[in-house]
Design a protein around this nucleic acid. Sequence first.
DNA 1: GTATAAAGTTCTATTTCAGAACTAGTAAGC
DNA 2: GCTTACTAGTTCTGAAATAGAACTTTATAC
Lengths: 144, 144
Amino acid sequence: MIGDRWSLLILRDCFLRVRRFEEFQSRLGVTRHILADRLKKLVRFGVLRRSPYQENPTRYEYILTQKGLDLYPVVMAIVHWGDTHMVDERGRPMLHQHKSCGKMFDPVLVCSECGERIVAKEVHVHAGPGAAKGAAEELAARAK
Amino acid sequence: MIGDRWSLLILRDCFLRVRRFEEFQSRLGVTRHILADRLKKLVRFGVLRRSPYQENPTRYEYILTQKGLDLYPVVMAIVHWGDTHMVDERGRPMLHQHKSCGKMFDPVLVCSECGERIVAKEVHVHAGPGAAKGAAEELAARAK
DNA sequence: GTATAAAGTTCTATTTCAGAACTAGTAAGC
DNA sequence: GCTTACTAGTTCTGAAATAGAACTTTATAC
C-alpha cells in the first residue's frame, strides 16, 4: 500500500492537516495524475475517506480514518529517523510538542508489556498462527 | 530512500537476519537486477554495509549498520499496523518476544518526556531551525 | 569434463511515472 | 453576456523504473 514514491509523503501531509487536492499537489510537487490515483487508492484501502466540504460545485477533501490515524507511529518513526540521521547543520525541519505534557518530544518505541525501549537485538521472532508456509519453515531453520 | 517497491521489504528481511543476495531474492521474489540496485543504494546511504564472509571466491553479505538498526521502529510500526488492520482469519504471521522481559509484545510509541502513548491528535507541530522556507510559512498559517 | 553454487550483469517487454495541456462546474468582475 | 479565476480532476506523450529471463564470473565437487 505504501510501496511507491508518494503514498507515505501524502500520508505525512495528512497528519499535518493537509486535506485538499490542490494543497497536496502544491506542497509535494507530485503530478496531478499520480496524486489523483494515490488518493483513490488510499480511499480504497480505507486509510482516507473522501468527504464533501462544499456544494455548487461539490468538492471533496480527504480525511484520515481511524485506520489511517493508526499509521501515525509509522510516519513519526520515519520522521524521527530523518531527524537523527538526515538533517543538515541547520537542524530539524520540525519540532513536535506533546499537548498533554506540554514538552517538545521524540517518539520512542517501547514494549507493551514492560515499557522498556525496544531495540532490534532484544527481539525474538516466532512464527504466528497466520504464518505463510515456507516463511515459517525458513524462520524455524534460521532460529536454530 | 525507501520510496520504492522493495527497499522496505529488503530492510524488513534484514531485521529477520537475512544477509545474502540469494536469500533476499528467493524470499522476496524481487528481480535480481532490482535487488542488486537496491542493495547498492542502501549501502550508499549507509544503512547497510557490504562485508566479505568468504574468500575464493570472495562473497559478500549485507549487514545493518547502526543507522540501519535505527530503522527498527519504522519497520516494527509498519508490521504492527499490518497486524492490526491487514491480517486474515488465521491471525498474525509473526509474533515478537521481548528478550529482556520474556513476553510477547506489541510495539507502542510513547513520548520521550512523559512516557505517555502518543496519538496524532495530541501532537502540535512547530517549525524547527531547519524548516524549509515556505513550508514554515504554510505551517504557521495553518496553525492559526 | 560436467554440474553446482553465489552473486551478480545484460537484455527486452511491460508498467509506472513525469510534464504538460485540457475539461467540468461554478462564482466573481465588469 | 463575456472573461477570468478557482478547484478537482482527466487525458495525452515521452521518460524512467520494474519484471522476467538468460547470461557471466569465480570457484568447488564429482
